[in-house]
Design a protein around this nucleic acid. Structure first.
Length: 258
DNA sequence: ATGCCGATTGTAAATCGA
């Protein structure tokens, strides 16, 4: 079984690339972020033609998340229960796999702009609410994957310039503590369970030849609970779609389970 | 440095992302 996450930066623009990618990488579950479209424009049929059921939570212009699955999805939740949030950032559902139910929580975490701003304060509130909600999700769903665009580079090795960017957005101690708090719930960073190339990233700035110079960040993650950790067989970034014409600025991250 | 990219809105130039 494979679970993947991909911030597509506009599904309207990227749909042909997502379809092409699924044809070469037929993952079982794909979590999408930054759809930038409303639910009425979500291309359920295009994914159904590839064998995927889809659940979406869209929004005009910004944000928007979706789950695609080859297995039936049920108990879908949109956004963090109890958190008043006008932005569509979370969709969670249970995939009924042959090995049993797997809860997939897909998040487009708040960017946060810069420490000290209102947006950063929103990011901290949002992370706090996510943490509290995940504790109860984990209690109800032993096999759980928290995936998405976390907008946090958890460690120095997850940044192309950890010294120059120290305590800037994605790199602050506060953001990293929130990431550690998620791990403290019993989750494991699937990517770090395996040997990886140095300077492995999942996002590169469109500007200044960021991808060509590999000036990137690892901010897209797959965190797994113990039952999934025990079955984890690999995790990697697929850089190939970043080389497409008109790419998303993010590349997909894929985790494989026995 | 806060940006030369890219998407969106809306039809020019501003906003946002990360």
């Amino acid at each position: 079984m494979k679970i993947a996450t991909w911030n597509v930066n506009s599904l309207s623009v990227r749909l042909p690339q997502v379809v092409a990618w699924l044809q070469t990488q037929p993952v079982d579950v794909l979590a999408l972020q930054e759809l930038k479209l409303t639910d009425d424009k979500f291309p359920h049929e295009a994914f159904a033609a590839l064998g995927y059921q889809s659940e979406c939570f869209g929004q005009k212009t910004y944000n928007g998340v979706a789950l695609l699955s080859r297995y039936p999805l049920h108990d879908t939740v949109r956004n963090i229960p109890g958190l008043a949030d006008e932005q569509a950032r979370v969709i969670a559902a249970t995939a009924q796999t042959p090995e049993g139910p797997v809860r997939v929580v897909n998040g487009y975490f708040v960017n946060g702009q810069a420490p000290g701003t209102d947006k950063f304060a929103y990011k901290m509130r949002w992370l706090e609410a996510l943490h509290a909600w995940l504790r109860s999700e984990l209690a109800q769903h032993p096999a759980l994957a928290l995936v998405g665009d976390f907008n946090v580079a958890p460690e120095d090795r997850d940044s192309f310039d950890p010294e120059g960017l120290r305590e800037t957005i994605h790199h602050t101690t506060e953001e990293r503590q929130h990431f550690q708090a998620l791990l403290a719930l019993g989750l494991t960073d699937a990517f770090r369970c395996f040997e990886q190339p140095d300077k492995s990233f999942s996002w590169w700035d469109y500007r200044m030849l960021g991808f060509q110079k590999n000036r990137g960040l690892r901010i897209d993650h797959i965190l797994v609970s113990p039952p999934l950790r025990g079955r984890l067989a690999g995790c990697s970034v697929d850089r190939a779609p970043r080389k497409n014409p008109q790419p998303s600025d993010h590349a997909p991250v894929v985790a494989q389970f026995d």
